[in-house]
Structure formats: C-alpha cells, structure tokens
Design a protein around this nucleic acid. Structure first.
Ligand code: FES
Ligand code: FES
Lengths: 137, 137
DNA sequence: TTTAAATGATACCATATTAGTATCATTTGT
DNA sequence: ACAAATGATACTAATATGGTATCATTTAAA
C-alpha cells in the first residue's frame, strides 16, 4: 500500500531535476535522457504540471518547460492532489445497521483528524527541502 | 486516493458486528444477511481473518466464526496490513542521478517519519473504540 | 453411518485503475 | 515553408481490486 503512485513519483523527479538547472528552459527530451523516464509518459506528466501551474511552457521550436514557482512553494500534498486526487481515508466504515448516526460518529472524527494531520505533514515537504538534501551530500 | 480498501472495510464491518454479538458463534450466512456483503466475498474475508488470528473457526455443521481476541486488541493498522500489505509512502523519490546517497537522504528520513506517525495513529484505532462509539448513540 | 451444513483452500472471472503509447493539432524560431 | 517543440486526446497494455465458483474437509445430527 503506497501513498505515492508512479505519476507523482515521476513528477517529483522531474521537478527536482528542473529546480537544479537554475532557470534554464528544458525540453522533454532533455529530461527523459537524464531521468530515464519514457518520453511520451514524461511528456504527459509535464503537460499536467503545466496545466496545474507548476510549470511554464513555451511552444514551438526552442520551446520547453521551466518552473513556474519557487521550489519552496511546491508542496508534496499538492502534487499528490494533482495526480492521485484528494487523499481520504474512508468516509464510513460501518453501515447503518451498525453505526446509524453518521453525524455524531466518533470514529469518523478520529479518522478525519488522522487525515488532516497526514495532509499537513505532507504539505511540509517542499521541493525546496529536497534541494537542501542535495546540498548536503 | 483512499487508505482503506473494500476488503479492509468489510473486515471492519464484520468484526464490529461480531463484537456486538457477545461471544456468540456466527456463521457467514448470519453476517451476510446483516451486513449485505456478498456471501462468497465475505467468506473469503472471514477466512483470511481466521488465518491471521483475528477469528477462531469451527468447521462442520453448527460451526462458524467467533472473535479470537478482545476488541481492544484489534488494531486498524493490523487489518490494513493483512488486506493491503505494509503501508509505505515511497521508498525513493529520486533516482541516482539526482539523489545518489540513499543512506544519508534527508527526504527519506522525513518520509519515514510521516509513515511511522501515520501507522501509530492508525494503531490507536481499535475495534473497541468503534464499540464505544456505538454505546453513545 | 450416511447426510447435510459448515469452513479450508484455491482457482477463476470481471471490472477498475494505473502505466504507457500513438497521433494529430498548434505554435514558433529559423 | 519547415522542423522542432508543446497541447490535447484517444488508445492499448498491464496490474490490482472486487467478486465468484468449486471441490475438499470436518462435524453434528438424523
Ligand atoms: S463509521 Fe460510518 S457513521 Fe460511524
Ligand atoms: S530520495 Fe531516494 S535516496 Fe533520496
């Protein structure tokens, strides 16, 4: 059971790589060489990142992608949101026979709390924090 | 993106229902009536719960299942483990080109911490705590 | 001692999600 | 005009999930 799927993983790899190439515009083929991710798949992911405002794109010859935000404004939970939809545990474990009172359900509240904490922890992981990690090696 | 799949969900429903029938042996058909879960599917799930020590089973005519542990010793994270495998975020976001030092990777440590906290929070949710919820309605 | 009612084990099928590809349209520098 | 890039989108393949079928084994009771 993994919280992070392939799309999100590739997106992180790509964004991180781009963050290292300070401000240089990159085309998909540059990234695919470096990251060993299949060209058309990576392209789809970069297009999605563009669509959601993480990347700026320029079309035509000499075009490519470049980060549209500071790495410290790119949060892991946002990437998960884009590629995997909203994170949620489970609305309701029990059916009416067992737990008829949806509104005052203690279990639901506990689960919702866990979900919120997880989200806030994921939002503390920024692309920036990955770069810091790089500097120390 | 959900942390809980159908199997785990059904397992919780079934265990919870059984916990309410204090100590009474129940056969699959009793549960399937009450929970509206398809008979063969529920049966597979109960068999798995038995295999992993959550239920005791008696075969033959008049047989059935019964809780093998106190509800306060049945933890949500254990059920997730049985039906969805070990919960892990992601081993390694970055490939060698970007993050070559697997051992001293700050990111990995942060992710591992988040994972541990999540697990420990899920382990605080016991079947017992669901029953408490029931009493209050 | 036969039989019916239960679980054990396991193989199978159906559907949904995820991973990856292909293709054509649009833009743009040369 | 043309080639090189992304935009959009439809398609295919592989895997995971959800659910079924079947036969073997055990056991209480007629
Ligand atoms: S678990 Fe669904 S309302 Fe309590
Ligand atoms: S992310 Fe894999 S070693 Fe750092």
């Amino acid at each position: 059971m993994s919280l992070i799927n392939r799309d999100t993983d590739y997106a992180i790899k790509a964004l991180c790589f781009m963050a290292k190439q300070n401000k240089e515009k990159l085309k998909v083929s540059d990234l695919t060489r470096a990251l060993k991710i299949p060209y058309p798949f990576l392209r789809k992911i970069l297009q999605a990142l563009h669509k959601h405002g993480f990347l700026a794109a320029s079309k035509g010859k000499g075009g490519g992608f470049i980060l549209a935000r500071s790495p410290r404004r790119i949060f892991l939970n946002d990437l998960i949101l884009v590629f995997q939809g909203p994170l949620k545990l489970n609305n309701c474990f029990l059916n009416k026979k067992i737990c008829p009172d949806v509104n005052s359900c203690l279990l639901r509240r506990k689960i919702s709390d866990i979900e919120k904490r997880l989200k806030s922890e994921l939002s503390l992981l920024t692309l920036d924090s990955l770069m810091i990690n790089q500097e120390r090696r």
